[in-house]
């Protein structure tokens, strides 16, 4: 054994000195703490910059604005934790609204109107059907979910244009609009529904076998399969659930805008996915939670709302969202690399 003067070994010795500080830094869980810190930071920032920001009205407003994207984000969170993706969410959403609207009013190709509850059921079934088809293509035909759901996106848009003739549909019954526009005890129904969906999904992910196995599949599909988890079944179910939740968002959208619109989903394909990632859920699966998604959704909502209050236009809002997203993903990736 001889003593080395190799610079590599020397620098190793030096690192021991500075490592106590580094160790403290390493202990921080950036992926969880980062988005929450960001959220708190911009809330403080906007409350200083704008007097209207922290008003009850504005807070309710923010929640109402994020509800629809939030429910879609919750749906796609299941998918992303399972290490798959769904690009058809913003197509399922308007189609379900159009189907439900048509059934309730007898519009489009529907010859007669049916009760509202049947219409709602039809809307949800539409979402379930297309989600199921994506899931089947991914699990059984082994088509990567990126391609399966991208194809599904075009298929749904084609169906939607054919069914609606690209025309909007008015005269949605009030009882149906209530979900998107009504209030209970002064709180918008849409917000209550968002919170209920969040609480239920958070519970499913944390407390049920179903939720646990989604993490296992997302973390290591092969190990999950070798441990006796029916991976195919899970893929089909998870994409079906995502479809149902997007259909739910579509029903709320009917009340929000007061009509069924083919264009209701334009520009909404990626914001829900961005919100999930922003919250710290890993795009590669296995890591994440509904709580993180909630933080991500709020972060995006607060940012847009605050900039709006300050008079910043759509240009500035998009720019800011992009910058925040890239910072969030960068810290997320660095946090993952450290482990």
């Amino acid at each position: 054994m001889q003593f080395s003067t190799d610079p590599k070994t020397l620098s190793n010795d030096l690192q021991v000195e500075e490592s106590s500080f580094r160790r403290a830094l390493k202990k921080i869980d950036y992926t969880t703490a980062g988005p929450i810190t960001g959220l708190v930071f911009i809330i403080i920032l906007f409350s200083i910059l704008s007097p209207h920001f922290l008003s009850v009205n504005n807070i309710v407003n923010i929640l109402r604005q994020v509800s629809i994207i939030g429910i879609m984000a919750i749906g796609v969170t299941y998918v992303i934790i399972m290490a798959e993706i769904d690009l058809s969410i913003a197509s399922i959403m308007p189609l379900s609204g159009i189907i439900a609207g048509a059934v309730a009013t007898g519009g489009y190709l529907m010859p007669f109107a049916l009760p509202v509850w049947v219409a709602i059921l039809c809307g949800l079934l539409t979402g379930a059907l297309f989600g199921f088809m994506s899931g089947f293509a991914t699990a059984k035909l082994k088509i990567p979910s990126f391609m399966a759901t991208l194809s599904m996106m075009f298929i749904i848009e084609g169906v939607m244009l054919w069914f609606s003739g690209a025309q909007p549909l008015y005269g949605i019954p009030d009882s149906m609009q209530w979900f998107g526009a009504g209030k209970v005890f002064g709180i918008p129904v849409i917000v209550v529904i968002f919170i209920l969906v969040f609480v239920a999904s958070d519970f499913v992910l944390r407390k049920t076998v179903f939720g646990r196995n989604i993490y296992a599949i997302g973390g290591n599909e092969e190990a999950a399969r070798m441990s006796g988890i029916n991976v195919d079944k899970y893929k089909i179910w998870v994409l079906t659930i995502c479809g149902i939740l997007c259909a739910f968002a579509g029903l709320l959208m009917l009340g929000r805008i007061g009509s069924a619109q083919v264009t209701a989903g334009v520009g909404l394909q990626l914001p829900p996915i961005a919100a999930v990632i922003l919250g710290g859920t890993s795009l590669f699966g296995g890591i994440g939670s509904m709580r993180r998604t909630l933080v991500g959704v709020l972060l995006m909502g607060v940012l847009v709302n605050g900039l709006n209050l300050l008079g910043v236009g759509a240009d500035g809002q998009k720019l800011a969202t992009g910058i925040v997203l890239i910072i969030a993903v960068a810290t997320n990736v660095m946090g993952t690399l450290k482990k």
């Binding site: 290591n220 092969e222 190990a223 070798m226 441990s227 988890i229 296995g286």
Partner: peptide
Amino acid sequence: TEDRKKEGFVGLLGVKENISLTTIK
């Protein structure tokens, strides 16, 4: 299995989650 990293455990999950993979019921 021979390749425990690939097929044996889910690295991102904790020890307890991995132990209950087969017997979560």
